[in-house]
Design a binder for these strands. Structure first.
Lengths: 133, 133
DNA sequence: CTGTATCCCGGCCGATACTG
DNA sequence: CAGTATCGGCCGGGATACAG
């Protein structure tokens, strides 16, 4: 681990932009935050929404988000284990950023056919046996 | 080159977020776009504003931004060469996104001392001869 | 269910040198 | 001035297996 990488920011007025980007990089954080924006989710609930993420990656990203103070991790001491993830107040401050990203994506990306393909992604993935792709 | 990488998006409602992030990743694109928001800039002018970027990286990133239709590259056939970069109309549509990033960074990041250190970065860099750094 | 531990590959990205 | 070419390290992140 050690997660070093937030170093070497340039320092122009643009550094704020860069700094923000560093916090939501990692290929998955943005999407995770987006889903968390809509409410508390359990580990596997997030996985369902991120068909292509691996366990390892999800754990890693969530740990970083937690470390950065964006996400609250709540462990219920019971078996089977139950862990819930939710946004902290600080995490919620990212809402405008995430929504801006979402809005732009909705407006300007064209995977028209992807639309309906998305609909049943959880069914597809529920049984990972298929691997039709 | 070949710049493949925009594949394997997940496909949930969050895919729009992910798709957008893919376009401004690369560690530098966000900042480049930010500076370009403020007007047309020449190659070295951008470099001045990105103290830590290398020639190679700047070229690469600009090429990708151009390929994605965000940036217009104008070459003036004269010697010494002069190349200007500016945002396309499509590039300008990213303004809300970039500004959201900037706003959050200004609000929530703490490199207090960086403030004034940033102030005169252009003077420092104007004459690259100094190399005071 | 929710992780952690290993292995390891691909490619991002930096350093450096050369060109029109 | 504005690039291109080449080499290489490092680490992001995927696959897989194991654990509480």
């Amino acid at each position: 681990m050690t997660r070093i990488r937030h170093q070497s920011l340039d320092c122009s007025p643009g550094c704020a932009v860069e700094a923000t980007l560093q916090l939501i990089d990692g290929k998955w954080k943005g999407v995770i935050l987006y889903h968390l924006l809509q409410g508390t989710l359990r580990f596997n609930a997030i996985r369902k929404r991120l068909p292509n993420i691996t366990q390892r990656m999800l754990t890693t990203q969530l740990r970083e988000l937690e470390r950065d103070g964006f996400v609250l991790r709540t462990v219920y001491p019971e078996v089977p284990p139950k862990v819930e993830y939710s946004l902290t107040p600080r995490g919620r401050t990212l809402e405008p950023v995430i929504l801006a990203l979402k809005a732009w994506g909705d407006e300007h990306t064209e995977f028209r056919h992807g639309r309906e393909a998305c609909a049943d992604h959880d069914e597809i993935l529920t049984s990972a046996a298929k691997r039709t792709k």
